[in-house]
């Protein structure tokens, strides 16, 4: 018998594959963004949800992926399918290195350091000294990729397919990581670091590597985002981006894999729909996403710390129990 979890994944896969048939143009672009966010959230959740290292600065790694890809494409003529993996590896390196000071920083201090990283990132990106590479505050523009080999897909559809392939691959990687020895080690380090070390888990290695892998996920997402938007600029990688990643993993469910899809849907569509409400609220509509984010963060922590994924899981279980009795 197929397990319920697999059935859920099957459903998601069917919807994801059917989307290009029903959605087009801008809507499809939005769903590409959802997949991109889902990858970034997955990375952050590996670090924060599973390993307990709080990062408020994942927007910075997203930015390294995005800028790395954009610089490789525009300045060095590297094709996008090579630029994204290269810049993601750079992200892995950056994350791994950031993981070293992070080792010495307990939860709160790491949150402080990554918060500083998130606030400072846009200023560093628009720094005049790097103008030749980063384009300063103007950012970088690049053409969107077309489907190769004469595949009959338009630009938006092709970008969606690329994002879907990357997301599927990375979700598989994450599921396998988390459900195996590595995942148990990560969770053990989160829940009881000293006990984990006593059991022979190399906490330092796991934590720094986890930081690297997490940054790699963020880097892939950033690279895909640069290609999908066709543009990078310092302002799009500010504190708000980093904090909305945090909102995404909390809404989707800390230490959940499938929940990241809900988290990504949430952070993509809430600001969008709030924007449309400006007809009724005028300028006040700008405050709406922030208000929703803030209230939900506190409410979810108080009522349902396992997020949407946890709520769905509990609901399904209750339904099954009711059906059996």
């Amino acid at each position: 018998m197929v397990s319920l979890t697999n059935l859920g994944w099957l459903l998601i896969a069917v919807i994801a594959l059917a989307l290009p048939v029903f959605a087009s143009g801008y809507h499809l672009y939005q769903f590409s963004q959802v997949l991109i966010y889902a990858i970034a959230l997955l990375g952050l959740n590996l670090l924060t949800g599973f390993n307990g290292q709080i990062s408020l600065g994942h927007g910075a790694f997203f930015a390294i992926g995005g800028y790395g890809t954009a610089i490789l494409i525009t300045k060095f003529g590297v094709p996008y399918w090579a630029a994204i993996p290269i810049s993601s590896l750079v992200c892995f390196g950056a994350g791994f290195l950031f993981g070293f000071p992070a080792l010495r920083l307990g939860g709160l201090y790491l949150a402080l350091a990554t918060f500083a990283l998130a606030v400072a990132a846009p200023q560093i990106l628009s720094y005049k000294g790097f103008d030749n590479f980063t384009g300063g505050s103007q950012g970088l523009q690049m053409p969107k990729p077309h489907a190769p080999f004469g595949i009959p897909l338009n630009v938006d559809q092709w970008i969606y397919v690329v994002c879907l392939i990357c997301a599927a691959a990375l979700f598989l990687v994450a599921i396998n990581l988390v459900n195996g020895r590595v995942g148990r080690a990560l969770i053990a380090i989160r829940d009881h670091p000293i006990a984990a070390e006593t059991m022979g888990v190399n906490a330092a290695l796991y934590k720094t590597t986890c930081f690297g892998v997490s940054a790699l996920f963020a880097g892939v997402a950033g690279g895909l985002s640069a290609v999908a938007v066709g543009f990078v600029s310092p302002d799009s990688f500010g504190l708000v981006l980093s904090l909305s990643f945090l909102v995404g993993i909390v809404v989707g469910g800390l230490a959940s894999i499938s929940g990241m899809i809900f988290g990504a849907l949430f952070i993509e569509f809430v600001p969008n729909y709030a924007d449309q409400l400006s007809v009724y609220f005028g300028e006040g509509a700008k405050a709406l996403p922030g208000a929703i984010y803030g209230l939900l963060l506190i409410l979810i922590m108080a009522v349902a710390p396992s997020g949407v994924a946890g709520v769905i899981r509990a609901a399904v279980r209750r339904l099954l129990d009711a059906a059996r009795s």
């Binding site: 709080i54 709160l108 922030g290 984010y293 209230l295 963060l297 506190i298 922590m301």
Partner: peptide
């Protein structure tokens, strides 16, 4: 982690 998330939530609310 929960406390940090609540504080971030508070800052979102005051900003909004």
């Amino acid at each position: 982690l929960a406390s940090v998330i609540v504080f971030i939530g508070l800052s979102f609310i005051f900003n909004a």
